[in-house]
């Protein structure tokens, strides 16, 4: 019996320790008592892209002297966990909420009930009470990508497009933009296939495309992971094909520096996080915030890749 009591107390003590440890790690970001608090709920914190958003949000909090909490599920597939996290942040009555919805429709019911300003970043949702949406103009990003690819090819050359998952509005818009630019430049798009934003899938999709069209000179991929997958398929065949991606991830920029990937259209995840928090504070203070804010895109090629790489490395430190 004594043993049992001891066991229970050990278990209880363990739980206590675990929770205290967790508590401490959570309080790091806490500023003073009376500062404004902005809660940021992202799609996940486990990929480089979202780390940049997190870094931007935290930097804004530091500069503006407000308390910023950034949370997100383990992966982008944990949709319900994100909804729960939004609920749990709302129950702590933050001054404002910044959200990047994984599945736009799923956050609408919980966010409609929010009685604080809600700002969306990266991905928009059909939410009546949103204060603002800050994100990349995906059509424009795709258009820039198409233009960049066309500038590396000759008029009349053949090109392929690798798109994201069906129904992914962000990648769909990019593909539309890229197609428009390629058409204007007189490049013929001979194949368009989805690879669900996944590197491995993009590789096999590209292998299939090359089976039929081995005279392709360029590829536009709707994100960088797919671009890198496409690149592998192209390299395996020993072909000279220009591949353009979208996002501007560290891996893509490194590949550009190594002379493999031809270029990418970089989004500004760091800025999205930063602007999200900054405008959330403005909304708390009752200032007018624009309903739609464009987050800039940047064309990355071998010329400016080194600079971008240093920036990316710096912000995640």
């Amino acid at each position: 019996m004594k043993k049992k009591i001891r066991l229970f107390s050990v278990a209880a003590a363990f739980m206590g320790m675990v929770l205290l440890a967790g508590c401490n790690s959570g309080q790091e970001a806490n500023g003073g008592e009376n500062t404004e608090r902005v809660a940021v709920v992202l799609k996940t914190l486990s990929s480089p892209y979202w780390k940049y958003v997190e870094a931007g949000a935290k930097a804004a909090g530091k500069e503006l002297g407000i308390d910023v909490t950034v949370v997100g599920p383990n992966s982008e597939s944990e949709v319900m966990q994100q909804v729960n996290m939004i609920e749990d942040q709302l129950s702590q009555s933050p001054g404002a909420l910044v959200v990047s919805p994984t599945q736009p429709d799923t956050v609408v019911p919980v966010l409609e009930g929010a009685n604080v300003p809600v700002l969306l970043i990266d991905t928009d949702a059909d939410l009546k009470n949103k204060t603002s949406f800050i994100g990349t103009e995906n059509y424009e990003a795709g258009y820039e990508g198409g233009k960049l690819l066309a500038s590396m090819l000759q008029k009349g050359d053949k090109a392929a497009i690798v798109s994201g998952a069906l129904g992914n509005t962000a990648t769909d818009e990019r593909v539309k933009g890229a197609k428009a630019a390629l058409k204007e430049a007189g490049i013929e798009v001979v194949a368009e296939q989805p690879a669900d934003s996944d590197k491995t899938k993009a590789m096999s999709v590209m292998e299939n495309i090359l089976q039929k069209n081995n005279d392709i000179k360029g590829v536009f991929a709707a994100n960088d992971d797919m671009a890198l997958g496409v690149l592998r398929a192209v390299e395996a065949k020993g072909l000279d094909v220009k591949v353009i991606g979208t996002d501007g991830t560290l891996e893509a920029v490194e590949s550009i520096l190594a002379g493999k990937l031809a270029g990418t259209i970089a989004q500004s995840p760091y800025d999205m996080g930063y602007e999200g928090v900054k405008n959330a504070l403005a909304a708390i203070k009752g200032k007018k915030v624009e309903k739609r804010m464009k987050s800039p895109v940047e064309v990355i090629t071998k010329e400016n890749a080194q600079e971008k790489l240093e920036f990316l490395k710096k912000i995640v430190e």
Binding site: L19, G22, C23, Q81
Partner: peptide
């Protein structure tokens, strides 16, 4: 556990461990 750890702003990775 999940809710409490969320309230304490414990990261999702840590929640899995707990």
């Amino acid at each position: 556990l999940r809710n409490g750890l969320n309230l304490l702003n414990v990261s999702a990775d840590f929640q899995m461990t707990v």
